Amino acid sequence: MKKMICTALCVLSVNLIAQAQQVAPKGFDVEQQLASTGKIDSIVYPSKTVGVSRKAIIYTSPGYNTTKEYPVLYLLHGIGGDEREWLRHGNPQVIFDNLYAQGKMQPMLVIMPNGRAMTDDRAGGNVMAPDRVAAFSTFEKDLLNDLIPYVESRFSVKKDREHRAIFGLSMGGGQALNFGLGHIDTFAWVGGFSSAPNTKLPQELLPVPKEAKDRLKLLWISCGDQDGLLNISKRTHDYLLEHQVPHVYYLEPGGHDFNVWRNDLYNVSQLLFKETKSKEVK
């Protein structure tokens, strides 16, 4: 079962669109015996925004070599998670390793930060407390002014917008859309999985739709068809469609959970940092 709507003048080529429609095959997130795998590590970076050192998880692709420069995906978690939420529930390193082994993914670094930018940024307690919710907005400054500069000063990565992507799930999906579309000069690949109510209204996300038309490599909106937050993704899609902004709108089977988000990651990771040709698709 698969459902997908893509606006006219979609930036993706036909073969990439076909990939993006897939419900991931059985075993896509199960560890295999592979000749080469990526590496998961933890980094600590100084945050002037928060005033403390903060943690993030980094995945380096198989064969990472400092003589080369790599693009970077910033992958964000939900309101109840932290920098390890994707690792605990999403198996991203396994999904990536399996895709690399099949030749379906571009080499890249993946940064999984803590999107709750406050002194005590641990998950738990009342995640809906006003100060904890506000910290997800504060992360915009932490990301742009502290984390990205740290990554680009410590790792062998490309430093232009065409080689930066930002995606996230639920609360992190809202962050990814808010920050990515709010900083098209910084990110060329932007998307939200089951984005939460922190997502700005569409006219606030993209007050000048032409900017996204002209500059984004990929704009991805996806959600499970049984998700109670579907209206957030739908209203964004409707606005983009009205203003003829090329994007992928992927409505897939499922609710608000990692079964959906693992599938999203499987699909999106195959599209990132690949050259595409404009193609009208309906």
Rank of each mutant, 00 (worst) to 15 (best):
E162F: 11
I166K: 08
V52K: 13
S233Y: 02
F155S: 07
G103F: 01
V14Y: 09
S13G: 15
K234Y: 06
Y100G: 06
P107V: 05
V94G: 06
Y45N: 01
S170V: 02
Y239Q: 03
T67N: 13
C10Q: 09
Q32T: 03
W189T: 02
A165I: 11
K68N: 14
Q32P: 07
H183N: 14
N263S: 09
F273D: 02
S195W: 01
V248M: 04
G255K: 05
I17S: 08
V190W: 01
L75A: 05
H183T: 05
T236F: 06
A134I: 08
G255R: 03
K158D: 09
S195P: 09
K217V: 04
P209E: 00
A35N: 13
V14C: 10
Y250G: 07
S156H: 10
N178D: 02
T276W: 06
R164V: 03
E31Q: 12
Y59A: 09
I5M: 15
C10W: 03
L230N: 03
R154G: 03
A123L: 10
D264Y: 00
T276H: 14
G191Q: 00
I17K: 10
N267T: 05
Q33I: 12
V14N: 12
I111R: 03
V208G: 06
P253K: 04
I5V: 15
F155A: 06
L147R: 00
E204R: 10
